[in-house]
Write a protein that binds this DNA or RNA. Structure first.
Lengths: 351, 351
DNA sequence: GGACCAAATTTGATCGTTCAAATTGATCGT
DNA sequence: ACGATCAATTTGAACGATCAAATTTGGTCC
């Protein structure tokens, strides 16, 4: 390991002072090009890297963002999506010289306790929140304590979307589901069912509206008929299968299904034995393995957008009562990934 | 936000000196119980938390472990397993007052570059490695540079398992597959196929041996017959389906299948239409949704074991030529999760 | 009561960096 | 030629904690 070189070693090697080296790193414009080169050569020669903790102590900034690992979120981004998101976030953060620290929490209150720990210890100086919900206590706490943060998910219900209290990036689920439904209508299907989550659910209700709009506009069915094609349930493959079974009994013939998640879609697909088109949401590995269509969220753009908001003019905080030049949120569009099923017959056990 | 209290504020409030407060936190035994209580009251009253960066600067320890996010590892722990592992690791690290920092890397060399960045910047002071392979350059680099680390995975091939050059925790895949095979033999099946990965692959070869042993001991088949039931391929559902199709053509009737991964098992299960028992590896969500048996790795124990080794006497490093009292590795046993299929018929398209 | 020793507590120095103020050296206007 | 101005660089101080050494406290023994 040896002793790591410090800024003083670099200064000595380059024949300048500490501060000049510091300036080369942080405010290059202050340094004469000639000296800058000398210093840069010394830095490279010694393999010097600034000591993160020393810098943090002095600047009171950690250049680290915190994100909770939420493995089993029923709502919003589930499992493998969070995984992809975390990966993309970390990769892009790295390019901006930001580090990512993860933590776990049992519930929202526990998460707030972690916010406290991590911000007070100066471990992180901004937070990334996923799966926001109506009346979220976490955003409230962060705003009150002046901690910078960005959410993946709109501030459902609490405030105006166009004039938000905080920064957010979200995916327009309604639009995605609407496009998917329109695609199915374009193939000739009319009796298109929607299997989603129980209300109230910000994400869930929004997605359902996409299906509802498309159906009302172009299916030619009466409102009661459309309503009869809607089955709210819990998230999960078995629930998806049961919901479709239920719909077939109560609403009769179903020509296609749009689902609020891939888990539900898997169930519906299994139950329908691949005979009718099923469209899921999130384009998880299951969808591609089994081979059903799914709506893909632009995860990279979400992560990139969040970092942009965090490092941009706002610095993760919306200054109250101040003119805002840059946008404070982004609503991104998902896109439909079409697949033809790899399986022909598939039926759920009768048990 | 206000100004956070420092150790000096606590000292003043408790009527003692800096160092006494520091001792209450780090070496309570040095402090008289009476004073300790006073200080603890002051800490609680002010809501003081030590400034992580200041402590790190002084102690030259970050109390942070780094782990690479590897989203698409074909070998070893794949996708959702890494997710579960990361979650478990973070949760257990938290209890030991350790933080977890994540990073991404395109390949091993890139990962080594990250090791450098993070250790030189004193961002992390130990690494967690997953999916080790034969002649892994990463472990070599870490050993050479004296960076503490633990691997999830044995040092395949490089050195002696019972006298390792570094700390590791692994799951006994051979034993797991062996038990799974024995279970199938117990149900009366004899012609049990094995679908795994191409050789050489540390993990893959080890798992295959488990099947081979069980077959040689108890199937009653001749060695050539057993060999004919083995199909090595790439990881993935389609490869699994193709492998089983191939085996049916070349080896004839197959009564059950054991696979090196759930992805392969999914393919085999789809191809066999759920008619014969299929056992996968990793017990991913796909296995539970679709409903096939799978071998579950004790992820929590793996994470816990790795942290134990890291924080134990070794401090993540095996001192060369020194007597070692504590064990330097752990080999854990997986267990079989049995399921009855939820689907009855399922066939792969002929394309 | 004073000498001695261990336990408890305090003080001085330091980790590596950046901020703020001070210094140097060159250019310029009058 | 002389101070004023400005760019480039240096020096002193501080961030908040811990280590190492010094000091005080308190008890025991003769």
């Amino acid at each position: 390991m040896g002793q790591l070189p410090t800024i003083l070693d670099v200064a000595a090697a380059a024949g300048v002072s500490r501060q000049t080296v510091s300036n080369v790193l942080n405010s290059p414009s202050l340094v004469r090009p000639e000296t800058r080169e000398k210093v840069e050569a010394a830095i490279a020669g010694l393999g010097y890297r600034p000591h993160a903790s020393a810098r943090r102590l002095r600047t009171q900034k950690s250049s680290t963002i915190g994100i909770r690992l939420d493995p089993l979120s029923a709502d919003g981004i589930s499992g493998s999506i969070l995984d992809r998101f975390l990966h993309s976030l970390t990769e892009q953060a790295d390019r901006k010289d930001l580090r990512v620290m993860v933590f776990t929490a049992a519930d929202s209150n526990d998460e707030i306790r972690q916010f406290k720990r991590l911000s007070e210890g100066a471990d992180v100086d901004a937070f990334i929140l996923t799966a926001t919900f109506h009346g979220d206590p976490r955003t409230q706490w962060l705003i009150e304590h002046g901690e910078p943060f960005v959410t993946f998910g709109r501030p459902w219900g609490t405030d105006d979307i166009s004039d938000p209290e905080h920064l957010w990036v979200d995916v327009d689920g309604r639009h995605g589901i609407r496009e998917a439904t329109i695609h199915l209508l374009g193939t000739g299907a009319r009796r298109i069912a929607y299997i989603g989550w129980h209300s109230p659910s910000g994400t869930g209700d929004d997605r359902r509206r996409g299906w509802q709009q498309a159906m009302e506009e172009s299916s030619g069915l009466r409102p009661e008929e459309i309503a009869a094609l809607h089955a709210p349930t819990e998230d999960g493959a078995t629930f998806g299968a049961e919901a479709l079974l239920h719909l077939e009994k109560t609403a009769g013939n179903i020509e296609a299904v749009v689902c609020a998640s891939d888990a539900l879609a898997l169930g519906a697909f299994m139950h329908s034995a691949g005979r009718i088109p099923v469209i899921g949401y999130d384009n998880t590995p299951v969808a591609s393995s089994i081979g059903f269509s799914s709506i893909e969220q632009p995860i990279d753009d979400v992560a990139g957008g969040m970092l942009e908001l965090l490092t941009g003019a706002h610095g993760g905080r919306v200054q109250p009562g101040q003119e805002v030049a840059e946008p404070t949120h982004q609503l991104l569009q998902p896109h439909l990934v079409l697949r033809t099923p790899r399986v022909q017959a598939l039926t759920v056990r009768s048990n």
